[in-house]
Amino acid sequence: MKKSFIVLILTSVLCSCASTKKSSKLAGNPIFPGWYADPEGIIFNTYWIFPTYSAAYEKQVFFDAFSSKDLTHWKKHEKILDTSAIKWAHKAMWAPSIIKKADKYFLFFGANDIQSDNEIGGIGVAVAYRPEGPYKDHLGKPLIDKFHNGAQPIDQFVFKDVDGQHYLFYGGWKHCNIAKLNDDFSGFIPFEDGVNFKEITPENYVEGPFMFIKDGKYYFMWSEGGWTGPDYSVSYAIANSPFGPFKRMGKILQQDSSIANGAGHHSVIHKKDTNDYYIVYHRRPLSDGTTRDSRETCIDRMYFNEDGTIKPVIMTTEGVASNKLK
């Protein structure tokens, strides 16, 4: 009896070690601890994720960032930007979007959750020489501080087209604008009709725009539903230009009652010269999914059909396998 018991214990330990070894090759979801939302994933020789710190608005006064060489082990870079560097911001620093231009990194962000044109806040820009900062205020004031076409100035995404032109997609309150950034990101270049902001809002759009190019097509994505509710989700459209028109094709990410609730506000990472696409998003754990700020950052694979349409994303707790960058 004693010998059998010892064998049983050893077998259990060996199985446990094998399981741990296998699981260590996967990222696991969430991919790092803490409440974080609105993640933007991007590659700068290393995988990077720039999320919103999910907390009460008055506590959202900084950004952390996370980097990884393989998608499975993440390093935290604390407070790469905070309100000490952005004097006009005092709360609700949201949804960072970053791009490299020449030798500088430009971080676009929302701040203060303004509700009218009479308040100070909107979309700002910070600049640094490294992805992890330190960042400083690029303009000393918001880049966009007014409502245009009904769009609240939040949820900005900076996009570089194939011709090198940079555009800013943004907008809350169920309206989305596109604007043509000037060369130093200090303002905008008017379109041919003289306006700076063109509305491109697709059906069911709420917030969180994102765009990428695949096989010459422009994939425009956004979040639908209420950000605090179980109906939060991601839909998309495909067009021949960054201006659309964008006809909604359907949802590709939504809650799974066996995994998590309220999945949305995402970005996409594509490893160059491969078919490896990853969707980076936030969701609410089933154990704490009714609390407003309980949002965690996750990664899962994103796949396409032969016709270029996106397959529905399967949310997992295991996450993705290691994928090292060369």
Score class of each variant (00 low, 15 high):
18 A>H: 15
19 S>I: 15
19 S>Y: 15
22 K>P: 12
22 K>V: 15
23 S>D: 11
24 S>V: 11
24 S>G: 08
24 S>M: 14
24 S>Q: 14
24 S>K: 13
24 S>P: 04
26 L>D: 01
26 L>Q: 06
27 A>Y: 09
31 I>W: 06
31 I>C: 00
32 F>A: 01
33 P>F: 06
34 G>R: 11
34 G>V: 03
35 W>C: 12
35 W>N: 13
36 Y>A: 05
38 D>F: 11
38 D>G: 06
39 P>C: 09
39 P>V: 08
39 P>E: 01
40 E>R: 05
40 E>S: 08
42 I>F: 02
43 I>W: 07
43 I>F: 00
44 F>G: 00
44 F>Q: 03
44 F>D: 03
45 N>I: 05
49 I>C: 08
50 F>P: 00
50 F>Y: 10
50 F>A: 00
50 F>H: 07
50 F>G: 00
51 P>K: 06
51 P>W: 07
52 T>N: 06
52 T>D: 11
53 Y>H: 12
53 Y>T: 05
54 S>E: 14
54 S>M: 09
55 A>Y: 08
56 A>N: 13
56 A>C: 10
59 K>S: 14
59 K>R: 13
59 K>P: 03
61 V>N: 08
61 V>K: 02
62 F>Q: 00
63 F>Y: 10
64 D>W: 04
64 D>M: 00
64 D>Q: 06
64 D>L: 00
64 D>V: 02
65 A>P: 11
65 A>R: 05
66 F>K: 00
67 S>N: 11
67 S>P: 09
67 S>R: 09
68 S>I: 05
68 S>M: 04
70 D>T: 09
71 L>M: 11
73 H>G: 07
73 H>A: 15
74 W>A: 04
74 W>I: 00
75 K>R: 15
75 K>D: 14
75 K>N: 15
76 K>E: 08
76 K>G: 04
76 K>Y: 04
77 H>P: 03
77 H>K: 08
77 H>Q: 14
79 K>L: 05
80 I>A: 04
80 I>S: 06
81 L>S: 03
81 L>D: 04
82 D>R: 06
83 T>E: 09
84 S>D: 14
84 S>A: 10
84 S>G: 13
85 A>K: 13
86 I>T: 02
86 I>C: 07
86 I>G: 04
87 K>W: 12
88 W>V: 05
89 A>P: 04
90 H>M: 09
91 K>V: 00
91 K>Y: 09
91 K>I: 01
92 A>W: 07
92 A>I: 12
92 A>E: 14
93 M>E: 08
94 W>E: 01
